[in-house]
């Protein structure tokens, strides 16, 4: 029995590490690819600025790669930390950590590529505002990393919190569910935040004098776009810290796993939707600065309505945890 447990925990660590790094690489690679694709267009539009464009691309890609470095850190920890192999719950925690970090890095990786690409196009269009564009790109890219940081926090908690005193059933499902909740919900928020940041770079290059208003609306839009991933984080914390009575009935485990899946999937759409609302607002603020107050209000109302589906998902997740 001991040998079986050891093999299962080790296998969970290997699969978890593979998921963390494999999925974590997907987002960053797509984001970096988008930046490079837009840089090509920018160079062909304004070849004499190729040096500035490639410099911006290099800096943008370095920041966009952060999400995959988070995933690398979590994967290496799972492989080499030496988690005790005598408890099956450690295996569930490692699998949950891998899922959380892997999915959580996808949206941030893709999203942080958008401002990089749009900044390259902007430099070709308006070389005079290159420093402003690069700064705005970096701020936008950094905010995009927030959902990946949330995922890394949950993954590290799953790796380092000990679950020795908790019963195997249904805690195993709560740990895997905690990984799904933050990991999946972070996809939409990371991607959506990137849409807003990309639109701000495009907007600044069209109307350089609108930089203040554009950056403000971008940051407000990105902050609201992060909300679904915060809901995911909240559900993960409840699943991690609540003590569940011992039960080996399948339905009680599935209720906790379902709670994590519900909040995780339920957070993807609102995160992307909020990002689209912010993208539209930022884009039009740059074209009509005088109406920025009105545009921001419309964005916030749209985001609030888009957010409601994430709230429904959170309510159902809480019902699954506390009522079912």
């Amino acid at each position: 029995m001991d040998i079986d447990t050891q093999i299962l925990v080790k296998s969970a660590a290997f699969v978890g590490a593979g998921l963390a790094m494999g999925l974590g690489a997907v987002g960053a690679a797509i984001g970096e690819g988008y930046t490079a694709a837009e840089a090509n267009g920018a160079v062909s539009r304004n070849p004499e600025l190729s040096g500035d464009i490639f410099k911006n691309m290099l800096v943008g890609q370095a920041v966009a790669e952060s999400a995959s470095i988070f995933a690398l850190v979590v994967a290496i920890l799972m492989l080499f930390l030496g988690v005790p192999l005598n408890n099956l719950l450690n295996g569930a925690a490692l699998l949950g950590a891998g899922l959380c970090m892997g999915f959580g890095a996808v949206g941030s990786g893709i999203g942080s590529g958008f401002p990089g690409g749009q900044a390259c196009v902007g430099i070709a269009r308006q070389p005079a505002v290159t420093p402003r564009l690069t700064t705005n790109m970096l701020i936008g890219s950094a905010v995009c990393q927030t959902p990946a940081i949330f995922s890394m926090v949950v993954a590290l908690m799953l790796i380092f919190m000990g679950f020795d005193k908790a019963p195997l059933g249904p805690t195993w499902a709560a740990l895997v569910g905690a990984g799904f909740s933050t990991g999946l919900a972070a996809i939409g928020s990371g991607y959506g935040g990137g849409l807003a940041a990309g639109a701000s770079c495009e907007g600044i290059s069209r109307q350089p004098e609108s930089v203040g208003n554009v950056t403000t609306v971008m940051l407000v839009g990105q902050a609201v776009a992060q909300t679904p991933s915060i809901f995911g984080l909240l559900v993960s914390f409840i699943l991690l810290f609540k003590r569940f009575p011992e039960s080996y009935e399948l339905q009680s485990a599935m209720a906790l796993l379902g709670a994590g899946l519900c909040m995780g999937f339920g957070g993807i759409g609102p995160g992307v939707g909020n990002g689209m609302a912010a993208e539209g607002a930022v884009k039009w603020v740059a074209r009509n600065v005088k109406r920025s107050g009105e545009l921001m209000r419309i964005m916030l109302v749209g985001q609030a309505v888009s957010q409601s589906t994430a709230i429904y998902a959170m309510v159902v997740a809480l019902v699954l945890i506390f009522v079912v």
Binding site: A62, V63, S66, I69, V73, P131, T134, T135, L138, I139
Partner: peptide
């Protein structure tokens, strides 16, 4: 881990300072 992000931190710091 903190050291692995040193270049990214310096890039952000440089631009925010500017």
């Amino acid at each position: 881990v903190f050291g692995l992000f040193m270049v990214q931190i310096m890039i952000m710091g440089d631009h925010l300072l500017k």
